[in-house]
Simulated assay, not measured.
Amino acid sequence: MKLLSVVIITCNREETIIGTIESCNNNINMNWELIVVENNSKDQTERKVKKFCEANDIQLEYIKNKTNLGVAGARVQGYNQARGEIVYFIDDDAIVLGKGNCIDEAYEYLLNSDEVQALSNKIDDTLYGGILPEIVEYDGKMKNGVDLRSFIGCSHFLKKGNVLPEPLYPLNLFYGAEEIYLSYYIHAAGKRIEYYDKINILHTPSPNARTSEYEKELNKQLNWYIVKKYIYPKKYFIATHILFVIRMIKLTKFNIKKLLGVYKVFKNRYDEKYIKRISNKSMKNIWHKFNWRYLI
Rank of each mutant, 00 (worst) to 15 (best):
K66A: 13
V136S: 11
I135F: 00
Q59S: 15
D125S: 14
L34F: 07
N80G: 09
K42H: 08
C11T: 10
N26C: 10
V49E: 09
A82S: 15
A106T: 11
L110V: 08
N56V: 08
A94V: 02
D93I: 07
V96E: 05
R13C: 01
E54R: 13
Y79C: 13
I103G: 02
D114T: 08
G84W: 05
D104S: 03
A74I: 13
D114P: 07
V87W: 05
L119W: 09
Y107P: 09
T126L: 14
G73A: 11
D92C: 05
A55V: 03
K99P: 00
N39V: 08
E22C: 02
I21N: 02
D93E: 12
G70D: 09
L127M: 11
Q59M: 09
I21L: 03
N39F: 01
D114Q: 12
D92G: 12
N26L: 14
V76I: 13
T10P: 01
G129K: 02
S23W: 06
Y109C: 02
L34N: 04
V116Q: 02
R83M: 13
D114R: 00
K122W: 04
Y107D: 08
N112C: 10
L127Q: 12
E115S: 15
I103Y: 11
E137H: 01
L34M: 11
Q117S: 15
D91F: 00
F89V: 11
E33Y: 04
C102Y: 09
E22S: 13
A55T: 14
I123K: 00
D91I: 01
E61T: 15
G100D: 07
W32Y: 15
Q81A: 15
I103H: 07
I131S: 02
T126C: 07
V116L: 04
Y88F: 15
S23K: 04
E137I: 13
E14I: 03
A72W: 04
E38K: 01
G98W: 03
D104P: 04
K48E: 10
K48A: 06
D124Q: 08
K51R: 13
K64W: 00
E115L: 09
A72I: 06
I131R: 03
V116P: 01
E105C: 02
E134P: 00
S23D: 04
G129I: 03
G100Q: 09
D125Y: 10
A72K: 10
L119N: 02
S113N: 14
C24V: 15
F52C: 07
N80Q: 14
A94Q: 07
K42Y: 06
I58W: 10
I123N: 05
N101T: 12
N31S: 13
Y107M: 02
K64R: 14
D43Q: 01
G98N: 12
Q59F: 12
N27S: 11
V71T: 14
T20V: 06
G129R: 01
L119E: 03
N29M: 10
E134W: 01
N112H: 14
R47G: 00
R47Y: 13
N144Q: 10
D91W: 00
C11R: 13
F52P: 06
S120C: 10
I35W: 03
G98F: 06
R75W: 14
G84Y: 06
V36M: 04
I28Q: 05
V96N: 05
T16E: 11
S120L: 09
I18K: 03
Y107T: 04
S23T: 09
I21Q: 04
C102Q: 12
E15W: 01
D139H: 12
A118Q: 10
I35Y: 06
